[in-house]
């Protein structure tokens, strides 16, 4: 790198901008001078994001509109034809895929409600000046630092479906406490198995939502509370009319962040139930199963696009909302 620095150092110094109104050419020069560095600096990320995000989304949409379902087609030995929305139509008529969507909906709903509930509860308790706040904050936030796969492996064991004498994990605890009625097959329950997976998910991200809410609480000036008290508001009224409205942007961010994570859930389910388990099937695992072995690129892309649309449904209103707020 030394030679490069040498050249830079020996370059003639640029003329300083003149205080008088400059002729057109030097104005352009000035514009370049002001804007070229930021454009240059931002262009690598723009190009990378453009190619590796937007172009790939575009190309996935393209693939999802073809009949590229087999290995010979992927390898270019057989024709790939445009089939329009046929893959989407077939997927949305397939009871197994609808079952994946239903699982995803259930999972997202319970995951959202669970993290919001526990996140808010913990933040509220800590806000009430619980002792050792720093300690509890770290402890509650810590599960987020554990990778989903590592957590999943542990939870896989905790959620072991074996009941009775040979049980392990949570069922073992129930067994030894004599609470045999609470033993169940967890993630292998044929109808509600997916909800068992929300337990580790809520465990993992409630702390994060707590941190968001805690920041929200801290951002409310004390004067507001004092003013409300002076006006004779009781505790409930204080929360209902002063604190909750102040927290709503935080709550909205939390819903968006948790919601879009939830729609993409993959690692936790792979670690707990595996790629084949029907009762915990979600679209992200469908994508994996379409690609793996079968090389069915078209259907995998179609499911991917459906997932993207689901996330957009959640995020676009949020972006519109924040854009409006910013303008105000």
């Amino acid at each position: 790198m030394t030679p490069v620095s040498e050249t830079v150092t020996s370059a003639p110094p640029q003329a300083a901008p003149k205080p008088t109104p400059a002729p057109k050419r030097s104005k352009r020069k000035q514009w370049i001078k002001r804007n070229l560095p930021p454009i240059l600096l931002i262009s690598p990320s723009l190009i990378l994001v453009g190619v590796f995000v937007y172009w790939l989304i575009f190309s996935s949409v393209g693939t999802s509109l073809t009949n590229n379902h087999t290995m010979p087609q992927v390898m270019g030995a057989e024709e790939v034809e445009f089939v329009g929305l046929e893959n989407y139509a077939n997927l949305l008529r397939d009871p197994d895929f609808l079952h994946s969507l239903r699982n995803l909906g259930l999972y997202t709903l319970v995951f959202l409600v669970g993290t919001m509930f526990f996140g808010f509860l913990w933040a509220w308790i800590l806000e009430k000046r619980a002792r050792f706040e720093g300690f509890f904050r770290s402890v509650l936030l810590f599960p987020m630092a554990v990778s989903s796969v590592a957590a999943g492996v542990v939870w896989r064991w905790l959620l072991s479906p074996t009941e009775g004498k040979n049980s392990s994990g949570l069922n073992r605890i129930f067994e030894s406490l004599g609470l045999t009625g609470l033993e169940n097959s967890w993630a292998q329950d044929s109808k509600w198995g997916i909800l068992a997976v929300t337990i580790p998910a809520v465990w993992q991200l409630s702390g994060y939502v707590m941190a968001l809410f805690l920041a929200g609480f801290r951002g409310i000036p004390n004067e507001l509370r004092e003013a409300a008290r002076v006006d004779g508001a009781n505790e409930w009224q204080l929360y209902r009319h002063v604190l909750f409205p102040q927290l709503s942007p935080v709550a909205l961010s939390a819903v968006i962040i948790i919601g879009h994570m939830s729609l993409k859930v993959f690692d936790l389910i792979m670690a707990i139930a595996g790629k084949d388990a029907y009762q915990t099937m979600v679209p992200a695992i469908d994508v994996y199963n379409f690609i793996s072995g079968r090389q069915d690129y078209a259907n995998a892309a179609a499911v991917g696009v459906i997932m993207l649309l689901a996330v957009l449904v959640l995020i676009v209103p949020y972006l519109v909302h924040t854009a409006r707020e910013d303008k105000r």
């Binding site: 044929s190 388990a277 029907y278 009762q279 072995g293």
Partner: peptide, 19 residues
Amino acid sequence: SIAQGDAINKAVAKFRSGN
């Protein structure tokens, strides 16, 4: 074939899950 094997695996997983 791979496609047949895959589809049979899927059917067995569903049957095993009680669905």
